[in-house]
């Protein structure tokens, strides 16, 4: 990525963050982890914050204490052949504010791993195992990181884009 586009992205991020400064998740992240938010997007009424990979547990904890008490969903998107390849996606819900926020972590192909957030939300347990099973992204600190849906002896990670839809024959 050239520095010009990087600069542009930074400006876009700052504009979105400024426009949503009232959002408790944005405010809390800006106050406690100002460097952790790498990108911010607001599309179709949904706020997406891309967080630095090593800061995801802190970011989740910060957003949780800002009122987003419920982890709705955790999944992954494979952007093969682009880099970084995996987008681990967290959908968080605040029942008191009636709002949602999406956190993303970009994970490179060479080292597909990110810290587990089971210490923040135990609900992430099955979700992280599912992502590990189907995408091969490892979650550091997960208490029981084994395949969830597929048999233990299965080869490959079927939801990766380079895995054929019909499987290998």
């Amino acid at each position: 990525m050239t520095s010009a586009t990087e600069n542009e992205q930074g400006q876009q991020r700052d504009a979105v963050l400024q426009a949503h400064g009232q959002n408790p998740a944005v405010a809390a992240l800006q106050a406690k982890l100002p460097k952790a938010v790498l990108d911010a997007q607001f599309n179709l009424g949904e706020l997406t914050l891309t967080v630095a990979r090593e800061e995801i547990v802190n970011a989740c904890r910060t957003v949780q204490s800002a009122g987003f008490n419920f982890m709705s969903d955790l999944t992954c998107v494979d952007w093969y052949p682009n880099h970084p390849r995996f987008q681990v996606t967290y959908h968080l819900l605040s029942m008191s504010l009636k709002q949602r926020v999406r956190l993303c972590v970009m994970v490179p192909e060479g080292d597909p791993s990110v810290d587990s957030i089971t210490s923040v939300w135990p609900a992430a347990n099955f979700y992280e195992r599912e992502v590990f099973d189907l995408f091969g992204v490892r979650f550091g600190g997960h208490p029981n990181l084994r395949r969830l849906l597929l048999p233990d002896e299965f080869q490959g990670n079927p939801l990766r884009k380079d895995f054929p839809v019909e499987g290998y024959r």
């Binding site: 969903d73 999944t75 996606t89 959908h91 949602r100 999406r102």
Partner: peptide, 19 residues
């Protein structure tokens, strides 16, 4: 684009994340 749409199904929050 990316959207997460949730509804209340018979068993709880059903959400579709479509990219």
């Amino acid at each position: 684009g990316q959207v997460y749409q949730a509804i209340e199904s018979s068993r709880g929050e059903m959400g579709y994340f479509a990219v």
